[in-house]
């Protein structure tokens, strides 16, 4: 990884983590949508600096869609029934998870290998998706179709009952 990629990786990581914290801490839904868009931008930068240009493009499109959905005023607030103690326990659990994951990453003994996949990798990824892992690709396609059809059906029911 050369210096430019390294700088891009660290800057994108900072942008992405700031966007993630914004999603976690901001209260208004339009602000959360913007924060998720910033997060997606940083994530695309991380993928780009890891020589995964095609994954960066896909992630940018997907997270822009997520940001638009979260910024929309069309869904209502659904309150959880858990109390503040459980929420605080969940936050402490997230901190413990971060500590465990960071410790395991720091102590891990990884075997490094050379990388020959190219900077964008669209052709090789296409071969993987449609030749090597066609079943996984079709499973994700079915999941996306079912999810989008279910979401459209749910919104249609809501519009009818207005």
């Amino acid at each position: 990884m050369d210096s430019l990629q390294t700088i891009g990786f660290y800057v994108s990581s900072g942008v992405s983590l700031a966007g993630g914290l914004g999603v976690a801490l901001l209260t208004r839904r339009d602000q959360r949508g913007v924060a998720l868009g910033v997060f997606g931008l940083g994530l695309a930068g991380i993928y780009l600096s890891l020589s995964a240009g095609y994954a960066a493009v896909v992630a940018l499109i997907c997270y822009a869609g997520c940001a638009l959905m979260f910024a929309s005023p069309q869904y209502r607030r659904v309150d959880a029934v858990v109390g503040p103690v459980w929420r605080q326990l969940g936050a402490i659990g997230a901190a413990l998870l971060l500590a465990v994951l960071a410790y395991s990453a720091f102590r891990g003994d990884f075997a490094y290998a050379g990388y020959f996949g190219g900077t964008f990798g669209a052709a090789n990824l296409g071969r993987l998706l449609f030749a090597h892992d066609a079943l996984a690709t079709e499973a994700v396609a079915v999941l996306v179709t079912v999810a989008l059809a279910g979401a459209a059906a749910a919104w249609r029911v809501r519009d009818r009952t207005r």
Binding site: S13, V23, A24, G93, A94, A95, L97, L98
Partner: peptide, 10 residues
Amino acid sequence: AGLVAAGVFT
């Protein structure tokens, strides 16, 4: 790890 923890926290 930071991103996963931020997601769990959210």
